[in-house]
């Protein structure tokens, strides 16, 4: 763990502590949902990080296709894996909110469905990576899949306008009635900051690991060549 990572990790942890203070001790109760609404401040940052992570995967995939730098592929793969972790957390925290509020764990609402679809797309991306043995080929196929998969996201969200949604409307930039009181918005942003910084720490760690594993693979191939 390098010093940059230590600083980032400290920042993230400090923001997480601040978030907990704000959520559990400071901010007033939301009127309609009461205490349960506090889940929002961790659920939304997880969704945000998931979306950012998959976007990074698509961008790094594009850069890989342009440059053929294996490092770009490592960033793409690492980001997809972390995106899956955070999207899984969205799919866990969401139902934990829905159960007390809606009385059900899950509903086939468009926003829930689209998050699930996004999760499945990048799960397929990771499975594809596991099942293509040759490295250059794997990188190219993964890059194409990462880009095409990402294109599906806005289209899924367009379905939102057609089908009615039970999911609470986006509170930031979601239309006429949206908008949060400043203190709620500030709390949300603290959560987003904490998890985004944590995402960067995870990303850097995952890429370092991938570089080492690739170096080992290269050495083993060289070894095999020497013995042959």
């Amino acid at each position: 763990m390098r010093s940059t990572d230590r600083i980032l990790l400290t920042l993230s942890a400090a923001a997480m502590l601040a978030l907990c203070y704000l959520v559990f001790l400071y901010i007033p109760l939301e009127k309609t949902q009461g205490y349960i609404q506090k889940i929002f401040y961790i659920h939304v940052p997880c969704a945000w990080v998931g979306f950012v992570a998959f976007t990074v995967t698509a961008i790094m995939g594009g850069r890989y296709l342009a440059t053929r730098d294996p490092d770009h592929d490592r960033w793409a793969a690492a980001s997809a894996e972390i995106g899956i972790v955070f999207t899984t957390l969205v799919l866990i925290t969401g139902p934990m909110w829905a159960r007390p509020v809606w009385g059900i764990w899950w509903t086939w609402d468009i926003r829930l469905t689209s998050t699930l679809v996004l999760w499945l797309i990048y799960l397929a991306y990771l499975i594809l990576r596991q099942t293509v043995a040759e490295r250059d080929r794997r990188s190219v196929l993964a890059a194409v899949t990462g880009i095409i998969g990402w294109l599906g996201v806005p289209i899924v969200y367009l379905g939102n306008r057609v089908r009615a949604s039970q999911h609470p409307a986006p509170v930031v930039g979601g239309g006429e009635d949206s908008g949060l009181a400043p203190i709620f918005l500030a709390t949300l942003l603290v959560g987003v900051f904490s998890l985004t910084v944590f995402y960067i720490v995870l990303l850097r760690a995952r890429v370092r690991g991938a570089r080492l594993e690739d170096a080992i693979e290269e050495l083993q191939i060289a070894e095999g060549r020497d013995h042959a």
Binding site: A124, V144, T145, G159
Partner: peptide
């Protein structure tokens, strides 16, 4: 696109629906 991609995966015919179905979700719904 994905017919070729899945051919290059060890899972071949399994990989095609795994890759395609989630991406096709909005099309199927519509």
């Amino acid at each position: 696109v994905f017919a070729v991609v899945s051919q290059k995966s060890r899972l071949r015919e399994v990989m095609l629906p795994v890759l395609m179905l989630p991406i096709l979700a909005p099309m199927v719904m519509a």
